[in-house]
């Protein structure tokens, strides 16, 4: 039994080695096929990396947002602080920060560069503002809506702005990108199968004499098919590795520009990945697609090739 298994290993090893030798001998065609597969697989991988990075960014930001409560102009700072104290007692509120009209004006003066224009105003046009961070247990859309309604019901409140709106929109865009990722991955997977299928078909045509002789001396269809399946798997795996290299290269090339953009927003954000999970998933997909593409062609083509007597 162990002898049979060893034999099996030897035969597969032989098929594997002869496949690699064959691919090496037909260098250019193999390189072009691998290149096409690499480019095709790099697109969904790049999209995956982008979605992962941006999705993480959205999650990080959405944790830190809350509700801004703009009080009516006639509400004094003291009344604002009193309201804040009342709100802090609520169970769905974690933190309340008071930004007084004067503090708001100072901030605006610092950040907007409108100092001269603001000096021209007779008084402070800004209202007192309360920034409310909801409790971690009360961040679902319906709970936030309840909180918003409760805040808006206070007599001194002018408007309540739910700062989460933009985060929800952002998350919706990321979700759309994920859908796009799935669709593009499916389309490109079909493309990779077609590329490998066609390459294997051409290889079978180029090795017709060998296939006929092998069948003449008693080679089964499975035996004849084996090296072509290995070729398909090799194309898929090497193409996937190339895709990982392409995406990593692009990420490194973009690192400077991303760092500049992040700095402009006061963030230390940097692109990550592709990680081990993505890389192994992609190589696994490449292997499966290569095997499928080769099987689709080789099964049919080889069964059709009947040996001819001399």
């Amino acid at each position: 039994m162990s002898g049979r298994i060893a034999n099996w290993g030897v035969r597969h090893g032989h098929a594997c080695v002869s496949t690699i030798g064959h691919l090496a001998r037909h260098g250019l065609a193999s390189v072009l096929t691998v290149l096409a597969i690499g480019v095709a697989l790099s697109l969904p991988l790049a999209l995956q990396v982008l979605v992962d990075n941006v999705g993480g960014l959205g999650g990080e930001l959405s944790d830190s947002v809350g509700l801004s409560v703009y009080l009516k102009p006639q509400v004094s700072e003291a009344a604002a602080r009193q309201l804040a104290a009342t709100l802090r007692a609520r169970r769905d509120v974690a933190r309340v920060t008071v930004i007084s009209a004067a503090a708001g004006l100072t901030l605006l003066r610092q950040q907007s560069g409108l100092g001269a224009a603001l000096d021209a105003l007779s008084g402070n046009p800004l209202p007192n503002v309360l920034e409310i961070h909801p409790a971690a247990t009360a961040t679902s859309p319906s709970q936030l809506e309840t909180l918003r309604a409760a805040l808006a019901a206070n007599a001194g409140v002018d408007t309540v702005q739910l700062d989460r709106d933009w985060a929800l929109r952002f998350n919706a865009i990321v979700a759309l990108a994920r859908e796009l990722l799935v669709v593009s991955a499916a389309l490109l997977a079909a493309g990779v199968i077609a590329i490998i299928s066609n390459t294997v078909r051409l290889e079978i045509q180029g090795r017709t004499a060998e296939i006929e002789v092998t069948k003449l001396v008693g080679g089964s269809n499975a035996f004849v098919r084996r090296p072509f399946l290995y070729a398909g798997v090799a194309y898929g795996a090497v193409g996937a590795l190339l895709a990982c290299a392409i995406v990593t290269g692009v990420r490194l090339a973009l690192a400077g520009a991303v760092a500049d953009l992040a700095a402009a927003y006061g963030s230390h954000f940097a692109l990550q990945g592709p990680g081990l999970r993505e890389v192994s998933l992609l190589i696994g997909s490449g292997v499966v697609l290569g095997w499928l593409g080769a099987l689709l062609t080789a099964g049919r083509q080889i069964a059709r090739l009947a040996p001819q007597a001399g």
């Binding site: 034999n7 035969r11 032989h14 002789v213 001396v217 008693g218 080679g219 089964s220 035996f223």
Partner: peptide, 8 residues
């Protein structure tokens, strides 16, 4: 060797 290869 081919006939032997195909015959295990």
């Amino acid at each position: 060797a081919l006939p032997l290869m195909v015959a295990d």
